[in-house]
C-alpha cells in the first residue's frame, strides 16, 4: 500500500515536473545503491541473533539484580535484537511482577527501544561513526540516570518507601560486540 502510493506519487509528480523528477529519481537511485550493500548484512545479523540468543535467556538475566551491574545487564540485554518494542512490554510487565527493579525495567525498555545492534549498522552507514558513537554513548550514559529518576518518581507517587537515589553518571562507552 505504502509502496504503491509512494510510487504513484513519484510517477505523477515526475511527469508533471520533469527536471525535479529526474533529480528525485537520481537521489532515490543513490540511496538504493547504499541500501543494497547494507540491508542483507543487517538482516543476516538479525537472523543470527534470533537463532543463537534465546528470549528466555534475556528474561533470566534481567531478574532480580540490582545496582550498577543490574543496570548494565539491562542495557546489554536490551540491545539484543529480539523483536520490536511492543514485544518487550509483556516481558517488562512480567519482570516487574517478579519483583525486578523499576529502574532496571525502564532502562531495559529504553535500551530495547533505541539501541538495536543490527540497526546501528544502518546508522553507521548513513550518519557516520562520529554521530553514531556519540549518540549511542550519550544514550547509554543518560538512560541509567533516567531509569533511576523514573523509579524514584514512580515510587514516590505510589507512596512506597522512597529511598535516596544515587544518580551516578558513569559516562561509559556503549558495549559493542560483533
Amino acid at each position: 500500500m505504502f509502496l504503491a502510493s509512494s510510487i504513484a506519487a513519484f510517477t505523477v509528480l515526475s511527469l508533471l515536473y520533469r527536471d525535479r523528477g529526474s533529480r528525485a529519481l537520481r537521489i532515490s537511485w543513490e540511496y538504493f545503491q547504499e541500501m543494497v550493500f547494507i540491508l542483507p548484512a543487517v538482516m543476516i545479523l538479525m537472523g543470527l541473533f534470533a537463532v543463537w540468543v534465546k528470549r528466555e535467556t534475556v528474561v533470566r538475566y534481567l531478574g532480580e539484580e540490582s545496582g550498577l551491574p543490574g543496570l548494565l545487564v539491562s542495557i546489554l540485554l536490551g540491545t539484543l535484537p529480539t523483536g520490536p518494542l511492543y514485544v518487550a512490554f509483556p516481558l517488562a510487565a512480567m519482570l516487574l511482577k517478579k519483583g525486578a527493579r523499576v529502574a532496571n525495567v525502564m532502562v531495559f525498555l529504553s535500551a530495547w527501544a533505541c539501541i538495536k545492534l543490527p540497526l546501528e549498522l544502518m546508522e553507521l552507514q548513513f550518519l557516520g561513526w562520529k554521530f553514531t558513537f556519540l549518540r549511542l554513548g550519550l544514550t547509554v550514559a543518560l538512560v541509567i540516570p533516567m531509569g533511576l529518576a523514573g523509579e524514584a518518581l514512580y515510587r514516590s507517587g505510589r507512596a512506597v518507601k522512597a529511598e535516596g537515589v544515587d544518580v551516578s553518571d558513569g559516562g561509559m562507552e556503549c558495549g559493542r560486540g560483533d
Binding site: 509502496l3 509512494s6 506519487a9 533529480r23 529519481l25 537520481r26 537521489i27 532515490s28 537511485w29 540511496y31
Partner: peptide, 10 residues
C-alpha cells in the same frame, strides 16, 4: 527510498 527521492527532489 522513493519518498526520500521525492523529499529531496521536490
Amino acid at each position: 527510498i522513493a519518498v526520500i527521492g521525492l523529499i529531496v527532489g521536490f
